[in-house]
Design a protein around this nucleic acid. Structure first.
Lengths: 175, 175
DNA sequence: CATACCGATTGCATTTTGCAACTGGTTGCA
DNA sequence: TGCAACCAGTTGCAAAATGCAATCGGTATG
């Protein structure tokens, strides 16, 4: 059967996608960039719950750049820092992450504070994803978007997360 | 930060999902079951474009069963054969695959014959996915569904694929 | 001018993957 | 009855990916 790629696997859309982002770390890095607004190597390395190794992170950032999902430019405020940005191609991975989050929060033991964003994103549906993607286009690609009334999606996600954390902390204080 | 699972990683929905299906093979196996209607070990091993090793396949099938995504029962027609079925949890991975296929067909060099299904699924949207999932519930879980007018989603996908293959073969004959 | 921070890189141990041969059993057919 | 083809895996081993800790040369900060 049709095996065409260098890995000897097929030119199927799902397979090719998995060859790019189908490892344990790539989508987690993209998640941290999208939802955690991590833009620097050091932020991705330390400000995450997952504990990726520095060599793996360096390797994945390189791979994701070669795949056209990320770009890197120098940070004008610091000669050593680089700023990683999503490309349009990278931004459009959001629906994949959203579907994974929806599935995970339904079937796996997701914590309450980390699950709230997944639920919000699920309930918001493709319309909310599109709005969020427009916000990402603004911050990562510099493409101005039409101002919407009310708080942005990223603000709403952050607020919801903080509300759950506050609630739990409060509970714990009273218990 | 909150690292709770046995792997030392977080209880985030996306991370937990990736810990279950975030390897190179699991989602390909599920793809073959969903879109290729593969139900036996030997079918999954040989009737795929990817060339998975028998030990890896055995290991992943075990893992996916432990994760509650697949079940296995004896085939009454053959004492050695087992029939693998999707659970509801497995069926609900379809939207994840559909989003991956949509992304892949947009950004990666997907072949025409393998891309046609991805495009159909993208254009059909969540409504078509829901219909397909109902068909899967019937074949895998034995849950009767309301008959729809016209051909099923799986038939439509198969027909579209065959049409492209026929067209290409025809072209080649004339070229 | 010392200390902390910056993006990585290196060496090495462990784990996962891939390949090919093989096992014990079943089925279909002559 | 016997034999070839098929069945779902298993085994041993080599190769590749991953994970960990220490380190590197350079930069900002007090």
């Amino acid at each position: 059967m049709a095996a065409t790629t260098e890995t000897g696997r097929s030119a199927c859309a799902i397979n090719l996608t998995l060859e790019v982002v189908g490892d344990k770390w790539s989508l987690l890095i993209i998640r941290d960039i999208i939802f955690g607004n991590r833009r620097h190597y050091r932020e991705l390395l330390t400000k995450s719950d997952e504990g990726i190794s520095s060599n793996i992170l360096a390797d994945r950032l390189k791979t994701l750049m070669e795949a056209g999902i990320l770009t890197r430019e120098d940070d004008p405020t610091h000669k050593q820092k680089g700023i990683y940005s999503l490309t349009e191609q990278g931004i459009e991975l959001l629906p994949v992450l959203a579907q994974m989050a929806t599935w995970g929060v339904k079937y796996l033991p997701v914590s309450e504070e980390l699950g709230i964003r997944a639920q919000l994103l699920r309930d918001g549906g493709p319309k909310m994803w599109a709005e969020f993607m427009d916000e990402l286009r603004e911050t990562h690609l510099g493409i101005k978007r039409k101002r919407k009334a009310g708080p942005s999606v990223s603000e709403r996600l952050r607020k919801a997360y903080e509300a759950v954390v506050a609630k739990r902390t409060g509970k714990r204080h009273h218990a």
